[in-house]
Design a protein around this nucleic acid. Structure first.
Length: 759
DNA sequence: CCAGTACTTAGGTTG
DNA sequence: TAAGTACTGG
């Protein structure tokens, strides 16, 4: 293998030490992926059977890319025999093989977080608890963190410390909710994301033969992004590696950004306790970024107390300073950044795919999306709602789910009356109550509606019988027909296709829904075509890890996957990626760092690591921007620049003038801003005050100064009308408009998108 | 049971 | 703002 000249000394050592416990601490841009791929290729070249290797990655995409790269290095398809993927996907497969041992059917459903939330909401309602004290999201994250720490409902309810915490927050029944939730999932033959890790631990704990089998099988274990593993993941790895101790973990404590998901930075710090004779390799040379970027990032991260000692350095050129741009509003930020991008594309001939806009929260993408569209710059938004999460897709999938697994309660809830078939919510609720009284699954009552004494009309009972007959007839066929044939049948017989087809003329959203369903069906068709004769092409097979796929996984497979676009994503999803030009936007206090992270050092340090991750994505140019005002839930809030800008040494920064308002934004004035601290949040009732003081006509383009009394305008909802008066100033400006069909209305100009009609 | 409407409330990152 | 829920009258 000719890799020796492609690796530096430390990298080479990390590649060649394949026995025993190893930890690779890999600074940003230090060639971590290269080390991992070469290491695995080296193992295979040295006679290790790929079937004995397990490599756990952070995303499915990373796993696919690594498999390809290894194949290229070793020159054959052996890499396909490595067990490689995310924790969730690898262990969901193992769980399916062993499902009967832990009381699950092998075709168990995987509940996504929508399903989990909906179930928890149900339980809270069923227990007659106040849904404000028992906030669904809070409860779910509490349950999730219990599972990630392998705390069972019984332990949860018995643990005095936990009980104390819940009493303090006046939610003593969380334990009961947790217990009910677990039972309902078991009853429905469903696992949520956390169960995939939790139940794997149960399997390895309670079934020594299974543990032994997988210990023998996975003689070599590699874990990427180890800093982002949680306790449940840690323990799985520890158990599997216990016999052979050929374990290699790779990570960077400075890039740990998933504690909200239970990730425990201690896992990386504790490695030496579990494996006292471990070897440590530090990759500190950064090959990605310029000196300015590397050193600016080092300075920022040094503000954190908890970290492994290392000094990331680079031989690359000094490069440009980091630009800082001030904007007046979120919309202006969108326009200015987009304009900058437009310029480098046109004048510096930068390719679209060398550019990324990174933000803290998904909703920030909107302003950029709009401006990019106006300038005709192709872009792709990563993350956001996955294809499989769309309502129309989930509805059809719910049919597939319940056909594969009749007990899937969340699927039943979605579709018992979709499309409308005359089974009302009241009837459904009566059935649930009856099922709970009898201690059976909801489906049991559905399929035997006449045997249970449920007080609903005979008409409704008849509809229910028709519905269950349909589902059962499909269930009977599911293993005899290929996925596409049966999926198409279901889409037709259920009435979904007809329903969506008939709504198509309502508007573009409806057309899109129909197209999405068509796309799902054609995806199933190509799934069927791609299967060899040895592989199952059933619908159940297709459904196996649908819940674990992200948009990126889907795009990757699709042929129209055109990479020539600029990239928009959250900082979290930018992990592991690099771009020549990074635009890091929304650098404001309370947004980044997020308001929720301000109360503890631990949370704030994680935000700082997130900031560190963000700037180290940049190879050559990094631009930071912030807006001094921003719309949030219909209210305008003012904001101060993020403290993180201040944490970069000034010698690395270049405060750029915002050329949309040169006269207003002198760089020394920007610096003054940094002295200010807390944000003032203006709620609706104090909006007036704000407008009188701060209003800038350029703040929001929707305010149309061209409007005058007497103009004929068109309103989205009310149609044509005539302006009879305009009053108020700035953002509070409103018009009274007379609409022939709706009478006189007063509208806020900043919300009403009025079009002037030329007479 | 259903459709249209008024009201409420959302804290953020993901497999 | 936007999404989801509760209410109301057909």
């Amino acid at each position: 293998m000719s890799f020796i000249n492609e690796l530096n000394k430390e990298q080479l050592e990390a590649v060649e030490n394949i026995e025993g416990p190893n930890m690779v601490i890999a600074g940003a841009g230090s060639g971590k992926t290269r080390v991992l791929t070469y290491r695995i290729a080296y193992m295979i070249k040295n006679g290790i059977d790929p079937f004995n290797i397990m490599a756990l990655t952070f995303t499915n995409k990373a796993a696919r890319e690594m498999t390809n790269r290894i194949s290229n290095i070793i020159g054959n398809n052996e890499a396909l025999n490595i067990t490689m993927g995310t924790f969730h996907s690898v262990f969901s497969r193992i769980l399916r093989l062993n499902a009967d041992r832990i009381g699950y059917p092998s075709n168990f459903t995987i509940y996504d977080s929508q399903d989990s939330k909906s179930l928890i909401k149900d339980i809270i309602k069923g227990l007659n608890l106040d849904d404000k004290t028992y906030n669904t999201n809070n409860i779910l994250s509490r349950i999730s963190s219990a599972k990630n720490n392998l705390i069972s409902p019984e332990v949860y309810q018995a643990d005095s410390e936990i009980q104390m915490e819940d009493k303090m927050t006046k939610r003593p029944e969380i334990g009961l909710i947790y217990k009910t939730y677990v039972n309902r999932c078991l009853n429905a033959g469903a696992m949520d994301f956390d169960d995939l890790l939790y139940k794997t631990n149960v399997l390895l704990r309670d079934f020594p033969d299974a543990l032994n089998y997988y210990q023998q099988k996975f003689k070599y274990i590699l874990v990427d992004e180890y800093q982002d593993t949680n306790y449940a993941q840690y323990l799985i790895v520890k158990k599997l590696a216990a016999v052979n101790e050929n374990i290699c973990v790779v990570g960077d404590d400075a890039q740990s950004i998933y504690s909200f998901r239970g990730a425990n930075i201690q896992n990386i710090l504790n490695f030496k306790k579990d494996y006292p004779d471990f070897k440590l390799f530090k990759l500190e040379q950064n090959y990605r970024s310029t000196k300015n970027i590397v050193e600016a990032a080092n300075g920022v991260i040094s503000n954190n107390k908890d970290q492994i000692k290392k000094r990331v350095w680079t031989n690359n050129s000094e490069g440009n300073k980091i630009n800082v741009i001030r904007c007046y509003s979120d919309n202006e930020e969108g326009k200015i950044i987009t304009k900058k991008i437009h310029e480098i594309i046109n004048f510096e001939k930068v390719n679209f795919n060398e550019i990324a806009i990174l933000y803290r929260t998904n909703k920030q993408s909107r302003a950029f999306e709009e401006s990019l569209r106006k300038l005709n710059i192709p872009y792709k938004i990563y993350g956001g709602i996955s294809f499989y999460q769309r309502k129309e897709i989930k509805d059809l999938l719910a049919y597939f789910r319940i056909i594969a697994n009749n007990k899937d309660e969340e699927a039943l809830k979605r579709i018992y009356n979709y499309p409308k078939r005359g089974i009302g919510k009241t009837s459904y609720e009566k059935i649930i109550i009856s099922a709970h009284e009898q201690g059976v699954n909801n489906w049991n009552v559905f399929e035997n509606i006449n045997e249970y004494n449920v007080n609903i009309s005979n008409g409704a009972k008849k509809k229910i019988a028709e519905f269950t007959t349909m589902i059962k007839s499909f269930s009977a066929q599911i293993n005899n027909k290929d996925a596409y044939t049966i999926a198409k049948d279901i889409a037709t017989s259920s009435g979904i296709l007809k329903e969506l087809y008939s709504e198509k003329d309502k508007g573009p959203t409806e057309v899109e829904k129909y197209q999405n369903v068509e796309e799902l069906l054609s995806g199933i068709k190509s799934f069927v075509n791609s299967r060899t004769s040895k592989e199952s092409n059933s619908l159940s097979e297709f459904m196996l890890d649908i819940a674990l796929l992200t948009n990126e996984d889907i795009d990757e497979k699709s042929e129209k996957n055109d990479k020539n676009h600029i990239n928009l994503m959250t900082i979290h999803s930018s992990k592991g990626l690099e771009y020549k030009n990074i635009y890091l936007v929304g650098l404001e206090e309370n947004l980044f760092p997020s308001q929720m992270s301000l109360s503890t050092r631990k949370d704030l340090e994680e935000e700082r690591r997130l900031f560190y991750v963000a700037i180290t994505r940049a190879k050559e140019n990094c631009t930071l921007s912030y807006a001094t005002s921003r719309f949030q839930w219909g209210n305008l809030i003012t904001s101060e620049p993020s403290r993180f800008i201040n944490e970069i040494e000034p010698k690395f920064l270049n405060f750029e003038e915002n050329d949309q308002g040169k006269s207003r934004s002198l760089s020394n004035k920007i610096r003054q801003d940094f002295g200010l601290k807390t944000n003032k949040i203006f709620k609706s009732n104090s909006l007036k005050k704000l407008n009188d003081l701060h209003y800038d006509p350029k703040i929001n383009e929707t305010i149309n100064s061209d409007l005058k009394v007497g103009y004929n305008v068109k309103h989205n909802r009310f149609g044509k009308g005539k302006i009879t008066s305009i009053d108020g100033k700035g953002a509070n400006q409103k018009a009274t408009i007379f609409f022939p069909h709706h009478g006189s209305k007063i509208v806020l100009l900043r919300f009403a998108k009025l079009k002037i009609i030329q007479e």
